[in-house]
Amino acid sequence: MEFFNEAMMMINANVAMAPFIIFGLLFLAGFNIPVSEDLMLFTAAILAAKNPDYMWPLFFAVFAGAYISDLICYGFIGRYLGPKLFKIKFFASMISPEKLDKINSFFKKYGVWTLIFGRFVPFGFRNGLFLSAGLGKMNAWKFAISDLIACTISCVSFFAIYYNYGETAIEYVKKSNYFFAAMAVAVVAGVLFKKRKQAKAS
């Protein structure tokens, strides 16, 4: 936590180094380190608004960091470590098998749309989604292309909102995140209920 606080102080104090620090923090998020992509997007956009000359470096840093983070979570943790990750206390305490089962049901039902939808839901669901795709051995190219589209939509949308409207946009984004999270829970509950009903009928 101290390292994270120092990094945030450096980002705000030295805009020239900010793109590298933001990218590095998001890279760590791929290993399930609790770094908020939403906070990085907000920080990058606010800095860009105050320092227009750094807009593109800041945007590409947050975009590349978010996308590569997803690939790490999917490929290294999900596909490579696989079920072994639940034996590692660090990962087991963050993502429970039960949560992954729920996300996996959502994934099977809605396919790649889950990636686009899931990027608008906060950290816990988002990383669980990528882990689930890796554990389920989703085709690597399919994941990479689908997530690239999803990442582009979310990063461009949020960066533009924060850049143009600053802190006044935070409450609206929070409300939209709660809305998407509630929808995700409702859909997952519906899928699980339908499966149980079918199992009882058979």
Rank of each mutant, 00 (worst) to 15 (best):
A66F: 07
I33S: 12
N12G: 13
P83M: 12
A29W: 07
I33Y: 14
V112F: 06
F23R: 04
D70V: 03
G75Q: 03
R196E: 14
A144K: 00
D101H: 08
G75M: 07
T43D: 03
I77Y: 03
L47F: 06
L41H: 13
V112R: 06
P83R: 13
I33V: 15
F120W: 13
G134L: 01
P97E: 04
P57A: 12
V187M: 11
N51L: 10
W113Q: 05
A64L: 15
A64G: 08
A45E: 02
S202Y: 05
S157P: 03
N127P: 00
G128T: 02
L135Y: 01
V191A: 06
Y178W: 13
G82E: 11
G124L: 10
I46N: 00
E6W: 05
C151P: 01
Y178T: 06
A66Y: 07
S146F: 03
I95P: 00
I11A: 03
G124S: 13
Y74S: 00
L148Y: 09
P97I: 04
G134R: 00
L148D: 13
G82S: 09
M1Q: 06
K87Y: 10
F125V: 09
F86T: 08
G75W: 11
K174Y: 12
Y178I: 07
V156D: 04
S93G: 04
F76M: 01
L100V: 15
D38Q: 14
